[in-house]
């Protein structure tokens, strides 16, 4: 499932399907595979805002479709 499909709640980042620049950018911002993030806002098909602790990151729709996530039970 991609991040763009998550309306709200907490998910675990399972992987990045985008190119190298995209992956590096996520790393530079401090988002890693395995991190648990909360979806703050998602107006499909639009940008997604996620939260990791006190950090808020906006992700364009195109990029959000390339972030793979899994629900946490």
């Amino acid at each position: 499932m991609s991040l763009s499909q998550v309306k709200k709640g907490k998910v675990r980042i399972a992987g990045f399907a985008g190119g190298k620049n995209f992956q590096k950018k996520m790393l530079a911002l401090g988002i890693f595979v395995g991190d648990i993030v909360e979806v703050i806002a998602n107006n499909y098909p639009g940008p997604v805002i996620i939260a990791k602790n006190s950090l808020r990151i906006g992700i364009g729709f195109g990029m959000a479709t390339k972030i793979l996530v899994e629900k946490i039970s």
Binding site: G18, N21, F22, K25, M26, L29, P47, I49, L55, R56, I57, G58, I59, G60, G62, M63
Partner: peptide, 12 residues
């Protein structure tokens, strides 16, 4: 030249 991916930190 590719546009950089739109990912940004959003400070409160």
């Amino acid at each position: 030249e590719e546009s950089p991916p739109l990912i940004m930190e959003l400070p409160p």
